[in-house]
């Protein structure tokens, strides 16, 4: 075979492969072969009576089993009495591609370290987080009940030998501790017991950093920039990682009255243990003002603690839809 033919075959395969696969997919999905017109351009049962938690050293992991926030007096977004993070070292210029990669590596190393601590094979993992959101408008459940902007998320994950969650019981609670929603995952089916809906799912790995390291791994693809600072957060030394998105044109998101021109997601980690201290999201409004639109505090993360019987009972509940 001549060299020219040798080069021609892969190129031909490439073209035929792309065209063929695209066509097949269009047929599989039932869409017609021409592209769709108009496609745009783009009281918490926190196991106080539960079995002793394993694998947590309060000296090492200061976030483990902290008391839940009180219903009143909880620091709100923008609360100036809350201890601010102070930067003791900052990057004076945008990080280069190599620096971005190094930052990502640091995030992933911290996450791996923290995961090794809290995800130790099969057993129950219990995570409680406090979410404080600032939006101009909220939304409601299909049953008409308002979804609170501020809420407590409490989730029980039963992990298999591979560390995958095969059963889940999740609560959204008001800051007063009242249940707003309850959902479960059992037999590869999600069930939202509150709205009576269910859908297929599959086992997954819990994310003790609430997805920050996974997002950071997508930074290059998304055009986001990563930066890293050492800061003091409520008297503790923390590594703050920032993921910044710049929008080509002002972007109006649902629930906000004003368009934003850029945004940041900031994660504060304990440099020693890799534990997540705080996650916050910041939007930069068109006039340049920064607005902290969400703060998420980890409250409890504990391993090998059985859920209370009344919590486990939710796993057996069924929905009709």
């Amino acid at each position: 075979m001549s060299k020219r033919k040798m080069l021609f075959i892969p190129i031909l395969l490439l073209v035929v492969g792309l065209v063929g696969i695209s066509g097949a997919l269009v047929q599989v999905s039932g869409q017609q072969s021409e592209p769709p017109v108009g496609t745009p351009q783009p009281d918490l049962p926190c196991s106080s009576d539960a079995v002793t938690a394993q694998a947590v050293n309060p000296d090492e992991l200061s976030l483990v089993s902290r008391p839940l926030p009180q219903a009143r007096g909880t620091p709100q977004i923008g609360d100036t009495t809350a201890a601010p993070a102070t930067a003791s070292e900052s990057l004076a210029r945008p990080a280069s591609a190599d620096e971005q990669q190094a930052i990502l590596q640091t995030v992933q190393t911290l996450m791996a370290q923290w995961s090794d601590t809290v995800l130790q094979g099969s057993g129950w993992l219990h995570m409680v987080t406090h979410h404080m959101r600032d939006k101009d408008r909220g939304s409601s459940l299909p049953n008409g009940q308002a979804i609170p902007l501020n809420y407590i998320s409490e989730t029980w994950y039963r992990l298999d030998d591979q560390g995958q969650a095969v059963e889940v019981i999740a609560f959204m609670r008001s800051e007063d501790g009242e249940p707003v929603q309850i959902s479960t995952f059992r037999g590869n089916i999600w069930r939202n017991l509150t709205v009576g809906e269910k859908w297929d799912g599959e086992p997954f790995m819990p994310r003790p950093d609430l997805g920050f390291s996974a997002d950071a791994a997508q930074a290059r693809e998304w055009g986001s920039t990563l930066s890293q600072q050492t800061v003091t957060l409520a008297g503790r030394t923390a590594l703050r990682f920032t993921m910044r998105d710049e929008f080509g044109s002002p972007l109006l998101m649902e629930g906000y009255a004003q368009p934003v021109i850029s945004a940041e997601r900031r994660a504060y980690f304990d440099a020693r243990s890799g534990a997540l201290f705080l996650l916050e999201r910041v939007l930069v409004i068109a006039d340049g003002k920064e607005r902290v639109v969400e703060r998420m505090d980890p409250i409890t993360i504990e391993y090998s603690v059985e859920p209370p019987a009344e919590v486990l009972a939710f796993l057996q509940q069924e929905v009709t839809k």
Binding site: G38, I147, A170, M172, S183, T184, F185
Partner: peptide, 27 residues
């Protein structure tokens, strides 16, 4: 984890005498 965080309900929307209608929501 099966819990609805935001649920943005949009009103119905139609065009008359047209071949295409679309919308995109940002959350």
């Amino acid at each position: 984890n099966g819990v609805i965080i935001d649920n943005w309900v949009q009103p119905g929307s139609v065009r008359y005498g047209a071949s295409n209608h679309w919308d995109v929501g940002v959350d």
